[in-house]
Design a protein around this nucleic acid. Structure first.
Lengths: 218, 218, 218, 218
DNA sequence: GATGAATGAGGCTTCATTCAT
DNA sequence: AATGAATGAAGCCTCATTCAT
């Protein structure tokens, strides 16, 4: 799919594997803890016990380090997504049960990754590459879930089921992301209850998918 | 409502009105153009043709300048909201027409202000005061629109109309904000079509409000 | 004696007398409260309710304002000194009673003025003129007290009474000033007790003045 | 005794020793030459031929640099004090010879360090840590000399020899410090003659220590 | 004369990046 | 390859002084 560019300067040496791993862990942690604005290489160097020089031996720039972090995080998210989707698919659920299941699982996935996703969003404001990759990834990720929902296409009453599923799922995604503080405007977030939100979104989705424009007339 | 603190050391002379206006315009523009991360007072000073010192004669800090910009923007948004709401209310629409109207108008409002709202979101990550004021403002703003929708309470079939309206509107808000890039995760945004989104959201909302949990059984 | 240069630009107007007085009071207070390092004209202007422009109409510079403050303070100190000296002189005391009296009164005088003397010391480090005037004044002031002590010259056993009084009094002065924190090295100060210090200094002085080098032999 | 905090981010490489030494020398010199008020890091950077950044690699702040300078200076003073005291103690002098010796040596010590002590006093007005360390150090330093004098306790006629030595030595200290311009009020200083001052202080001290309150009666 | 807005040099500090060892 | 010291541009902020009104 996306053939992720290698942001690593050199192929991996034997023992340096460990130090690279320390580097990436420390960097991820710091990104999560401090946010992008307060993420500095000096601190990464200190926590990872890897010299600044070594960081620059591996990465052309701070940007590149972050890009690799993003890549790893999103790849990991992708793997978990696939597992979740497979697990759900096996249950062969009817739409009425599938929708809550999908929403809950997707929500939990985002919830699990919100720590790293949030700073990456900040980076997106500044790094085109991170922005693009994030977009691509999210689109793909969403598409997978949409496809899963479409396996119950026959139960959907909307005239254009593909289109309907696509749209409602993006709305669901927006609501979840906003709740998790993955948006900036997410001032408002934090008030409600997570379980309640998942429930409401399921209801909204089902009402929509099981509805038909004609029902709205008069 | 919120009694906005004065971040301004009010100038007592007159000629300075103009330069203050230049200052605020330049600052707003630059905030919109560059985003918070690249918003520097030196650049504001240059564009506004106002010395650094002058900025500090009026504002205690960079933070305070931004706070005033926020205040002005949100107050202006509030005024426009009030006008929009009044205009809609006068039409005495039925729910089926009210919902699209409200969503379209609210969407257009956010759309109009997205330029300044976006950097303010970034600031929220760093300035408690901006965060708090933004939250308060948004909550109030949303509440006004919810109240407007609730004037058709009788037409809503959901068992708890207030709760239903509250939840669906926040979902609508999330979807709009995400489309407008007011979220950080809004990588995905930009793909669809604005008018189509408004339309979909109206449909989703109506299907939900005119539905009833019992319909989902079986 | 010293013919103090006029640091005031213009002779005093009618109503502006008041504002000049406000200016000087505010400046003195702030100098005392904040110390020289944090003494700014903007703050003086604010507290005195006198515009920055007005300050510069009267004084060529910040330095000049401070110089006038010094002048006034030291003149006032001079007047009080004279009164104190006269009062003591009238008592016609013997040396054994005169010395404690002089030391106590002189100490109290310094104590009363320490608030303004301290920041003036800081200024001395930076303004030659303040340094010179301060020196001259102090020398004169000390000389007056020395002269008072010399009225009991006959009771002094030291071979060169003038010289002895001069030296011991400067030592007394140093000890008092240090105790009052008028020195920078006065880290050490603050430990003892003021009354005890006055007492000790009197004893030391008397032992010295009533002594004779020959006593120290063997 | 005092376990001096390390204000230094210890360099781990070797070539930096030299530049650190250059840095500290330049900083000390400039502090002495300019006084605290005009001591700027830019100038230190220029004179030491060390970049601003390097200074901040080693010190958290300007304050910390000065604290290290203080520490070094006072430690050096302490070492010299110890040597001086030992040297004097070995002579096993009688009080009449001990006092002049102690005063002369102590005076010379202060004289040698007055250059750096003066600006450190200014700093004390602003940095609590420098103030505290300076106080502690001075107290200890004085205590050592007092102890030396007390080895002739038997020759002292004052009823409370410890108390008497303590008080007179602090007076001596004040006089020396003032002469050396280590006080701010030390406008007056510079007039007399250093050797003469030492002599006078010795006489004053001896007259006091060899005296008795009863001698002053009548 | 008075007012106070405007100026701008200069201080401290941060941090991505380079480079000698 | 690794290390970490060195660099310096750039940001924020202060405050004495000037100057238009």
């Amino acid at each position: 799919m996306t053939t992720p560019k290698s942001y690593l300067k050199e192929p991996k040496q034997n023992r340096s594997k460990a130090s690279l791993e320390r580097l990436l862990s420390a960097a991820s942690e710091l990104l999560i803890e401090k946010g992008y604005k307060d993420f500095t290489l000096q601190e990464v160097s200190k926590r990872a016990k890897v010299s600044i020089g070594s960081i620059y031996n591996r990465f052309k720039s701070k940007e590149d380090l972050i890009r690799l972090i993003q890549q790893r995080a999103l790849e990991s998210l992708e793997v978990e997504s696939a597992m979740v989707i497979t697990r759900i698919r096996r249950k062969q659920l009817k739409l009425r049960l599938l929708v809550p299941e999908v929403i809950a699982e997707y929500g939990n996935l985002l919830n699990k990754y919100k720590g790293i996703l949030r700073p990456l969003m900040e980076v997106s404001a500044v790094d085109e590459v991170v922005l693009a990759y994030g977009k691509t990834h999210a689109a793909q990720n969403i598409a997978d879930f949409i496809q899963l929902l479409l396996e119950c296409k026959d139960e959907i009453s909307q005239p254009a089921p593909e289109r309907a599923v696509d749209h409602i799922f993006k709305v669901v995604y927006a609501a979840l992301a906003r709740y998790l503080g993955l948006g900036i405007m997410d001032n408002v977030s934090g008030e409600g209850d997570w379980e309640e939100l998942l429930d409401d979104l399921s209801q909204i989705t089902l009402h929509y998918l099981l509805g038909h424009p004609d029902n709205l007339k008069e």
